[in-house]
Structures are given as structure tokens and as C-alpha cells.
Simulated assay, not measured.
Amino acid sequence: MSSSDAPLPAEPIAFDIDLTGHEMTRRAHVMAALGDDWDPVAALRGEEEAYDLLYSGLDAEQQRLYDALVAAGVLPRR
């Protein structure tokens, strides 16, 4: 009887991997890369300012398309 003819196990084999330690290490590396002077509130404020600038000054067709994307839930309502 070859290995390809061997019967399959009747019960599934439990296969668990705990990635908790790896995730904590990954998060520590991310925080170290951001540095001590990283300000999440300022970063979010900067993103909001960038979006405001991005969607300002739209012509009529661009505004229509933007409104359609907002109505469809593709872009958040601002």
C-alpha cells in the first residue's frame, strides 16, 4: 500500500498557531518607527485637511460624480 492509498484520518487534526507574541513585536516595531514625536491627533487633522483640499474647487461634473460616490457609500459624507 503506497502513501497515496493510505486512508484519511477520520477526525480533523487540530492545527493552532498563536501569533500573539509576533503581533506584539510587530506593534512595538511600528511604534518605534513612528518615533516619540508622533502625534496621532495631528496626523488625523492633517488627513482631514488634505481631504478638504482634495475635494475643494470641483467643477460641476466632478461635483456630480463626487456626490454620486458619496450617495453610493464609496466615499464618506463630509
Rank of each mutant, 00 (worst) to 15 (best):
A10E: 07
D37N: 12
M1S: 14
V30F: 14
P7R: 13
D5K: 12
A28F: 14
L44Y: 11
A71T: 09
S3T: 15
G57D: 02
R27I: 07
A72S: 08
G35W: 13
R45L: 12
Y51P: 08
D37P: 01
S2R: 15
D36Q: 10
T25K: 00
H22K: 15
D67Y: 04
D16I: 06
D5T: 15
G46N: 05
R77P: 09
T25H: 00
G73I: 04
R77A: 14
A33F: 02
P76H: 03
L54W: 01
L58P: 03
A33G: 07
G73W: 00
L8N: 12
L53S: 10
G35Y: 09
P9N: 07
M24C: 02
D39Q: 02
I13R: 08
V30I: 13
A71F: 01
I13F: 10
Q62D: 07
R64N: 00
L53T: 02
S56K: 03
M31L: 11
D52Q: 10
H22F: 10
A32F: 07
D16R: 06
L69D: 12
A28E: 15
A43N: 04
R45F: 01
H29P: 04
L58H: 00
A43C: 03
E11H: 09
V70Q: 05
G73V: 01
I13H: 07
Y66R: 14
Y66V: 09
L34G: 03
